[in-house]
Amino acid sequence: MTEIVQVSGPELVTYADELAALLVETVGGGSSVGFLAPLDRGAAADWWRERAAAVDAGRLQVWLARDGERIAGTVGLVRAPLPNARHRAEVTKLMVRPSARGRGLGRELLDAVERAAGEDGITLLVLDTESGGLAEGLYRSAGWTECGSVPDYAADPGGVLKPTTFYYKAAGFVPREPRA
């Protein structure tokens, strides 16, 4: 059974090596999550450890999906820092281990972040993803609205510039309850 838990800054540091393995595997599989391949596992672990201060400060929230003893996925929520934007946040780094895909885990992670955002008074969520990628189907089926695409916005893991599509989800969303 998969368990989704929100982690603290110290817990993020504890899980940094496992999260690094997930990040390296995700990037190696061609998913565009901000890094180029080949991604060094040590550099990936350092990247996760560097996020701990933002978690402790409340600027970032991170959830892990544990499948037994292994991290099967993760998602983050970055709160907008400016006073006129405290009502919104960005969903980031939604990753599911390739061996765990196709079982609804991405949707469960997305539901967890949406539910927590709503409980925290967030009324607008945004995210971006590589245009034409598999993640777009997930976001559309979860009620996200496409608001535009920017050509050559980010490089894929191979370094090729690709378009990025932006999505939002406004107040009133009601995520499904987690599976028992």
Rank of each mutant, 00 (worst) to 15 (best):
V62F: 06
A154M: 12
V13T: 10
Q6F: 14
Q61G: 13
G143D: 01
V91Q: 05
G143S: 03
A16P: 02
R101K: 10
L19K: 07
S32E: 10
R179N: 08
R115M: 08
G102S: 05
R179C: 06
K93A: 08
A16H: 08
G68E: 06
Y168H: 15
T129D: 09
R97S: 14
F35L: 05
E108V: 05
R86D: 06
G118M: 02
A44P: 03
R103G: 08
R79G: 09
T2W: 14
E3Q: 15
A20Q: 02
R41S: 10
F166I: 11
L134F: 13
I122V: 10
D46C: 10
L22K: 04
G143M: 01
G118E: 03
V174A: 14
Q6T: 12
E25W: 10
G28R: 07
L77M: 08
V91G: 02
T14G: 13
L125H: 00
R88L: 03
L23Q: 02
A37Y: 04
P178Y: 07
S32I: 07
D111L: 11
D111N: 14
A20W: 02
L161H: 10
Y167G: 02
L19S: 05
V62R: 06
V160F: 14
V55Q: 05
D17W: 13
R101T: 02
I4R: 02
A54L: 10
L94S: 04
G106Y: 01
V55A: 08
A80G: 10
D56L: 03
R51I: 04
V150T: 13
V13L: 05
E3L: 14
H87L: 07
K169W: 07
R103V: 05
G73N: 04
L64S: 04
T14Y: 15
A154Q: 14
G159S: 05
S99E: 15
E11C: 09
L125C: 02
P163D: 03
A170Y: 12
D128P: 01
A43V: 12
R88I: 06
L36P: 00
L77C: 04
L105S: 02
E130R: 11
R140G: 08
R176D: 09
D152G: 09
A155E: 13
V174E: 15
A45K: 01
E11Q: 15
Q61W: 14
D152E: 13
E18R: 13
P38T: 06
V78Q: 15
V113E: 11
V33S: 07
V160H: 15
T123W: 12
G106A: 06
A155F: 07
E177N: 13
L23R: 00
S149Q: 14
T123C: 09
T92A: 15
E108T: 11
A65G: 05
L36I: 03
A53L: 08
R88M: 11
Y139P: 00
A89Y: 07
W47T: 04
K93M: 12
T74G: 10
V7R: 09
A155V: 07
T164N: 12
L124G: 06
P83W: 05
A57P: 00
G102F: 03
P175N: 00
E136I: 11
E90G: 10
P81T: 04
G143W: 00
S141P: 01
A170E: 12
V27E: 03
T164G: 12
L82W: 15
A89T: 02
R51K: 14
A112F: 01
A85S: 15
A52G: 00
G121E: 04
L12A: 07
E25M: 11
G143P: 00
